[in-house]
């Protein structure tokens, strides 16, 4: 564990808490993509199957369980409890355009052709693009609530911090996972446009709106 990985994990946890708080406090999931959230639940489910097969640390197990539980909690709030507030008209990104190619790629490019390893690879690839329906939704409506933009900033920062963690681990531990690194870089690049808008608008106290 190093400081980049720890702050990355904290940013990830903070993002999830921010989203749950936004939905709970406003009693609404308006502006949140149910498709991105469904894919995040799929990401955690397929990645953390190793909870059953091997133990790494109490920290690792606890965080994995929190991530899985919170992702299904978010789906419960969006699709059951506050279903009426779900903005499905603007959530039109086609999930199969991401899930199908990602599933194919995880069969072709993986560390080991075994079920758990293919599912792990699938989750890494899917996570890298799972935010696209959310970003697409913001581009359609042209704006995001401030709390939603804080959520996205925390969520995007997490993988950016992981890149620093991988640089650190490469130099100090000789650890290098090409699949995670490439997918993590793709994931971070997808946020760049959002990061720019967030820093130039939200940090100056304005709402996140897209240039016309």
């Amino acid at each position: 564990m190093n400081v980049f990985r720890l702050t990355g994990d904290i940013a990830h946890l903070l993002a999830i808490i921010l989203l749950l708080m936004k939905i709970w406090k406003t009693r609404s999931c308006a502006g949140v993509s149910g498709k991105s959230q469904m894919m995040f639940a799929l990401v955690f489910t397929t990645r953390y199957l190793d909870l059953i097969t091997n133990f790494i640390s109490l920290y690792n197990t606890t965080m994995k369980m929190i991530f899985i539980a919170s992702s299904y909690g978010t789906l419960y709030l969006m699709f059951l409890k506050f279903r009426a507030t779900y903005d499905s008209n603007h959530d039109t990104f086609r999930m199969e355009f991401l899930v199908v190619p990602v599933a194919g790629l995880s069969f072709l490019v993986n560390h080991d052709f075994s079920p758990l390893e293919i599912l792990w690879t699938f989750s890494i690839y899917l996570e890298s693009v799972a935010i696209l329906p959310q970003l697409f939704m913001i581009s359609k409506t042209g704006e995001a609530e401030t709390i939603t933009s804080h959520y996205l900033f925390a969520l995007g920062s997490y993988r950016a911090l992981y890149i620093l963690n991988w640089v650190y681990r490469f130099y100090f531990e000789g650890f290098f996972d090409l699949i995670a690194v490439v997918a993590g870089c793709v994931q971070t690049v997808l946020y760049c446009d959002f990061f720019y808008l967030y820093i130039t608008k939200v940090w100056k106290g304005k709402k996140l709106t897209l240039p016309a």
């Binding site: 990645r47 790494i56 965080m63 080991d112 075994s114 995670a180």
Partner: peptide, 10 residues
């Protein structure tokens, strides 16, 4: 050596 990878990251 081929062995089951332990993914220790989240």
């Amino acid at each position: 050596s081929p062995h089951i990878r332990r993914h220790d990251e989240l």
